[in-house]
Nucleic acid binder design. Structure first.
Lengths: 254, 254
DNA sequence: GCTAATCATCTGGTATTACCAGTTTTTACA
DNA sequence: TGTAAAAACTGGTAATACCAGATGATTAGC
C-alpha cells in the first residue's frame, strides 16, 4: 500500500484517484468520510485531508462541510489533454476520427508552412527530417521513430506561424504517441508501410522546402489517408484471424 | 482577507494562486515556508498545508521535504483550455490566427454535419438555430447572442459525429466567448454586420438541413471569412481614429 | 397520526502540540 | 582552509480537542 518514497498523502490521493478513474467510484458518488478513510487506510486524518485537498485541486472531487466529499460530476482534465484522452480511450473508432481531423489540419499545416517558410523554419524542418530519415534507415525502435515522426510534423506546424494550429495539432498527435493502442505505431514494424511512410515524409518535405503549398497539402493529406488505409488493412487482417480463431473453437466443441 | 463563506484553506490557496498567476511569484521561485505563511496569514499550519496541497493538485506548485515549496517551472492549465488562453492573451494577432483555424474546422464541420445528419442532429441544430434567430430579431444582448451563436456552431460540430472535431472546435470557439477582447462580440452591435451574420447562419443552416455538404462547407467558410473582414475593417477604422487622435495631439502642441 | 422542534450523530474545518525525516546552514575543530 | 558535526530549517505525520454545518432520529404538541 505505502510506497517507499512518497509521502502517505500522495499514496492516498493516488489510490483514491485510481478508484475514480477506473469508475469504481462513479461521478457524483460519495467518498467515504475522512475518519473512515483514515481508519481503513491506517493513516491519520490530516493525511487523508491533505490527500483529499490534492484531489480537490485536481478538480476530481468536491467537498462540502457537513455533507462529505463527492466525485465530481464532470471529471476535468488531469492534464491539458485529458478530455481528449477520455475521448480517445472511450471511443472505439477513435483512431479513425482522430485521423480524420488530423488529415484536415496536417494538410493545412503543410500548406501554410510552404507558404510562410522562413530560414529558421527551413533549418528546423530539415533537422527534424534528417533525424527521422536517419532513424528510418537504421535499426527499428518504434518508440523513437514515432517520436521523430511527431517532431517532424511539429516542426511543420510551427512553420505555419499560427500557434493555435500548432497547438491543436500537437495535442491531437500527442495522443497517438502516448496511446496504449499501438496500432499506428505498429506500422513501423511492417517493411512496406515503413517505406511508404518514409517516401511520403520525403514528398512533404520536398514540397515544403520548394515552397509549393498545394503540393505540400496534397502530400500531407495523402500521408494521413495512407495511414488510415493501412490501419484498415491491418484491422481486416486481424478480423480474419479472429474469425479463423473462432472457427477453430467451434470445431473443437463438435 | 478571509472570505465569509469559504474555508480558510481555500482563501489561502486562492491568495497564493493569485500571486503566482500575476507573476509576483515567478516560476521556479520559492514559496515561503509553511510556518512563515501560517504566521503571516494568521492561520494554523495545517490550514497552510491543505492550501498548498490544493495548489499542488492543480499542478502549479511542487513540494519537497527539507527544501520547501516552489512555483512550477511549467505552469499547467488552470483549466482545460489554459494553454490556449495563454496563446490568445499573448499573441497580438491571436484573433486572426484563431479564425484561420476555425475557418478550416468550421468548414469541415459543416461538411460532415450535412453528410452525416441524423434526425436527432436535425432537431438539435434546428433548436439552436431558432433560439439564435429569435434572439437576433429582438433586443440586443451581446453576451446572449454570442453564446447562442456558439451553441449553434456546437450543435453542428456534434453532428459530425467526430468527437475530436467537436472538442477541438469547442475549445477554440470558447476562447472568443470568454475573451476580454470584445472585438468579435462587438460585431453584434453593428446593424449591417449583425444582418450579415444572421444571413450567413441561415445559409449554413439551410445547406445542412438540405444535406448539401459542399454548400454547407462553403457557407461556413464564407461566414468566418466575413467575420475576419469585418474585424479588419473595424481595426482599420480604429487606426484611422487613432491617427486622427494623434494628429489632434500634435496640433495642440503647436 | 402528523408536523415541527430538539437532540444526537455525522460530516468537514481549525488549532495546538509533539515528533519524525530530509535538507541546508552554521559552527567547531584539525 | 577544509571537513565533519551540530543546529536550524524544511515538509510530513500523528494525536487530541474543539467548532460549524448537515442530516437523521426522537420527542413533544396539536
Amino acid at each position: 500500500m505505502i510506497s517507499a518514497n512518497d509521502p502517505f498523502y500522495q499514496d492516498v490521493a493516488r489510490q483514491l484517484e485510481a478508484l475514480i478513474l477506473d469508475r469504481t467510484l462513479l461521478p457524483g458518488s460519495k467518498i467515504p468520510s475522512e475518519r473512515q478513510l483514515a481508519q481503513r487506510l491506517s493513516v491519520s486524518r490530516p493525511v487523508v485531508r491533505e490527500a483529499l485537498k490534492e484531489l480537490r485541486g485536481r478538480g476530481i472531487i468536491e467537498t462540502q462541510r457537513g455533507r462529505g466529499s463527492f466525485v465530481s460530476e464532470m471529471l476535468p482534465a488531469a492534464s491539458d489533454q485529458s478530455p481528449l484522452r477520455h475521448l480517445f480511450r472511450d471511443h472505439s473508432r477513435a483512431v479513425y476520427d482522430l485521423l480524420e481531423v488530423r488529415e484536415l489540419l496536417e494538410g493545412q499545416s503543410a500548406f501554410y508552412a510552404a507558404l510562410r517558410l522562413t530560414p529558421a523554419d527551413r533549418y528546423r524542418i530539415s533537422k527534424a527530417y534528417e533525424a527521422m530519415d536517419h532513424s528510418t534507415s537504421g535499426e527499428i525502435d518504434v518508440n523513437i521513430e514515432a517520436k521523430l515522426d511527431h517532431n517532424f510534423h511539429q516542426a511543420i506546424s510551427e512553420a505555419t506561424h499560427n500557434p493555435f494550429l500548432a497547438y491543436t495539432l500537437r495535442s491531437l498527435s500527442q495522443l497517438l504517441l502516448d496511446s496504449v493502442i499501438t496500432s499506428v505505431n505498429n506500422l513501423y514494424h511492417r517493411p512496406e508501410q515503413r517505406m511508404m511512410l518514409s517516401a511520403q515524409h520525403h514528398s512533404i518535405f520536398v514540397a515544403i522546402m520548394d515552397q509549393k503549398p498545394d503540393e505540400a497539402r496534397a502530400a500531407a493529406v495523402l500521408h494521413i489517408q495512407e495511414i488510415r488505409k493501412s490501419l484498415q488493412a491491418i484491422e481486416m487482417e486481424n478480423q480474419r484471424l479472429e474469425r479463423a480463431g473462432k472457427w477453430e473453437l467451434i470445431r473443437e466443441k463438435q
